[in-house]
Amino acid sequence: MKFLKSKIIFILVISLLSTLKAQELAEKYLVISLLSTLKAQELAEKYEVKLIEKIVMGITGKSYPKICTVNYPVDRIKEYSTYLVISSCKQADMVIAGTDELESFDKPILLIGDTEIKDRKDVIGAIFWKKGRPQIIFIDKNLKRFDIQIPREYNKYIIKKDSLKYAEAVF
């Protein structure tokens, strides 16, 4: 009898679950237990933008460099960057791209998060993850193509390989 009762309870719970509709999500949850996750995520985004800012300023040598973004959230840049100025890609000093599936620009491109970097002549560097750690690379031949002199502290991130998959060339 008890066995039967448990089965009924079990089936009831399942039925209840299947009939409940998905709820509209609140734009931003305030429940504290989720806050620490949100805070960490915001912090991660902040440091990613700080990294981009540092690289762009180092490469352009400008205090307020102009950038445009392609497949990368421009709001993130606006939220966390003090010095980067958002402009059109035509006027930008550099392009920040979330993927290399993008049109050709006569501007240096910094790729974020894409590990499959094809042999483009305009990609001068990338930030991506490998073996659980964030990595930075600068592609020597493309830096030379744009006649870019990078700060000395970036030298250790330069790769000279012609590999199509730069991400596999470093750790």
């Binding site: 960490a40 700080k50 750690r133 964030p134 502290e153 970036y154």
Partner: peptide, 25 residues
């Protein structure tokens, strides 16, 4: 470390997977 290295380390720390998975309850 050097400045860019320091930011990279802080980025790594803030992006740690455990920040997403740990469950207070």
């Amino acid at each position: 470390g050097e400045d860019i290295g320091k930011i990279l380390s802080e980025y790594e720390e803030a992006s740690d997977m455990s920040n997403k998975t740990k469950t207070e309850s």
